[in-house]
Design a protein around this nucleic acid. Structure first.
Lengths: 123, 123
DNA sequence: CAGGATCCTCTATGATACTG
DNA sequence: CAGTATCATAGAGGATCCTG
């Protein structure tokens, strides 16, 4: 099992340096809203309006922006149905599912440990 | 294995909602510099100056700020040696190692897949 | 309904200089 | 060496109105 940055670099080269593509991807998928949107989509396909409600507190602007970024990255697929009123839904691509398979253990850990972390400064 | 947000919520309750502590922790550990600092520390204890060089591009201000946050969260431990000139080093706590054990698979995935993701918009 | 366009705010982040 | 203090700024993010 991989346990250090050094091991990752043995396999993938000098990653996570300044200007490295890995930093861009990190910014996309680990951004404030990126994680939450991806997370919501692990429950399956969602419509725009559903995502707005599911990802509590996100503004329309950030939802649109986040979805466009994730779509450009090939992690999310957008499907517009030719109807009136419009219906558009979003889902994870295969790459997106692959990503979330690796991210969910971390997210699960955060869900379990957060109570013990936040407010610790008040010790 | 956990495969969706719904499953996480079955186990941990209504997490990742607005105002939930999980969002704060997410912001700390998945912040631009938080990830990179934590990642650098998976290689072992580092001195302040080493971290500045290891985490390419980070400013002194952000390094200080990031380290203080992670220390307050109990993920990183700071040790000041009573010497002249001063020597201070930083290391992951047990909790920090536990966290990184869950984060490294994701980081490894990013290292492997990033080339295929960035620039995809130029298809 | 699903966004686009605008305007505005604030905070994360940077650059520089200084100190125990 | 290991920071802190200050000043400055871009861009993340929010609120609102508008439209196919």
């Amino acid at each position: 099992m991989t346990v250090s940055l050094a091991e990752i670099r043995e396999q993938s080269g000098e990653v996570f340096t300044d200007g490295c593509p890995t930093r861009v991807v990190l910014d996309h998928i680990m951004s404030k809203w990126g994680v939450l949107v991806l997370l919501a989509l692990t429950d399956g396909t969602h419509r725009w309006g559903e995502l707005r409600r599911e990802v509590e507190g996100i503004s329309e602007k950030m939802l649109a922006s986040t979805l466009r970024t994730l779509e450009a990255d090939g992690l999310v697929v957008r499907t517009a149905h030719p109807e009136v009123p419009p219906r558009v839904d979003y889902a994870l691509t295969e790459l997106g599912h692959d990503l979330m398979e690796h991210m969910l253990p971390l997210v699960g850990w955060v869900a379990r440990e957060s109570d013990g972390i936040v407010g610790r400064s008040a010790d």
